[in-house]
Design a protein around this nucleic acid. Structure first.
Lengths: 223, 223
DNA sequence: TCACTCCTTAATGTCGACATTCGACAAGGA
DNA sequence: TCCTTGTCGAATGTCGACATTAAGGAGTGA
């Protein structure tokens, strides 16, 4: 039907409508490209000038970035890209491990044979891309892996927090993810998670996922 | 010294400075007093008129309320007090239980004899106030109890989320807390937590705190 | 009666200008 | 030298007005 076509067309072309959303994406790009580094200040006037808009939508975007932990706000002073201490890095990853560990544990019985097949394939892909030093694809496939892990949970509150955390950690540290572990280690570490789910041992699952993230955080914190 | 006196005086008198903070507090009061109920819309123009200020600080305040989960934002439509379904209530309490359960478990060895004395006293107080049907004090002492429980944790990321969750749940449901359980049940439920910490059994501690909150959420969800 | 279109209304989204406040640096005195 | 004080610049905080858009009702046709 034409109605559907129209809707899907709109969905494709007008994904970003308000200036606020464009600003958020712009800042994400600045961070991912390295043009913006921890400690840098985001000056509203400067951003407004660069994007050819007023400060109002800039301020709106700042609030969203603050909510997602990608900007530190100091009243009457300004907005800064956060500089995470080693402990703060570990804390963030630990919290993510606590939340996702619970999510996976709680939903472990919903994983089908097809799901396990997908998970195994994703692990293989990660190891293969790691062997080819294609760090970008390692990160992408790793994202799919973790998305599938928590996809069974329908705890909206928990997913809200895990989404925020994974976004924050992705933006701030994705550059390191591909080089943290050897291809063999990457495969082994993620296989460990899949195996724990297959075991249906609740405590083991939760502990495995938790330690996976704590290990990752500890490693990043020591870079 | 006069320097100290001056600082403490300032800290006492100039707590609320910006209009934004005043708006946030104003909305909290509206919620706590019942003048604002789930489903109600917060119209920027109306709030601005009521407080004699412009819409700019109102919008700033909305962002903070959204971040804390006390306002639902619908683009181009407005800001609404969230209407939580029974499942959403349970999800929120479950998530709080997961986070605080981990926090308490991880710090259980730091509780001193003095801490346990305080915890026991707080439980007694709660039961006593419950017997007197002083629901307000039950809630307040309960807050002190839970604050002490997580006070040992220095995981900033985890505390950030637990603070947001406890604030949200307090604002939305504090009215019910005093009447959920009998005085005996209140004492028993909280004693169970203290006893688990005394046992130093990590799994038991985490499980106890978790179930404490899931139970509470389930009970509130059925009201 | 029902469905569709148009229009009005009221809310949010954005703008440019002004007010306020923090931080740094320079000047002065113990 | 160190501490205090005053000034200045630059950034955020706030304002009132205008632009844009979503929701609901009036009106028309079958």
């Amino acid at each position: 039907m034409s109605t559907f076509d129209k809707e899907s067309h709109e969905a494709m072309s007008i994904i970003k409508k308000t200036y606020k959303d464009q600003v958020v994406d712009y800042v994400y790009q600045l961070l991912l490209s390295g043009d913006l580094s921890p400690g840098d200040q985001l000056k509203e006037s400067l951003l407004a000038e660069q994007m050819g808009i007023s400060r109002a939508p800039i301020r709106e975007a700042m609030k969203e970035l603050i909510m997602n932990g990608l900007v530190d706000y100091r009243p009457q002073v300004g907005n800064f890209i956060p500089v995470l201490s080693p402990k703060q890095i570990i804390d963030s990853y630990t919290t993510r491990g606590v939340l996702e560990g619970f999510a996976v544990m709680e939903t472990c019985r919903q994983f089908s044979g097809e799901d396990f097949e997908k998970l195994d394939n994703l692990v293989d892909e990660m190891a293969r891309f790691a062997h080819m030093s294609n760090h970008k694809m390692v990160v992408q496939v790793g994202g799919e892996f973790h998305d599938l892990l928590i996809s069974k949970s329908n705890n909206g509150q928990l997913l809200e927090y895990t989404d925020r955390l994974s976004l924050k950690l992705h933006i701030l540290f994705y550059k390191h993810w591909g080089r943290l572990y050897s291809p063999e280690e990457i495969g082994a570490r993620h296989n460990k998670i899949v195996e724990s789910i297959k075991s249906q041992d609740l405590d083991r699952i939760e502990k495995t996922v938790r330690e996976h993230y704590i290990e990752t955080g500890t490693k990043i914190a020591t870079l």
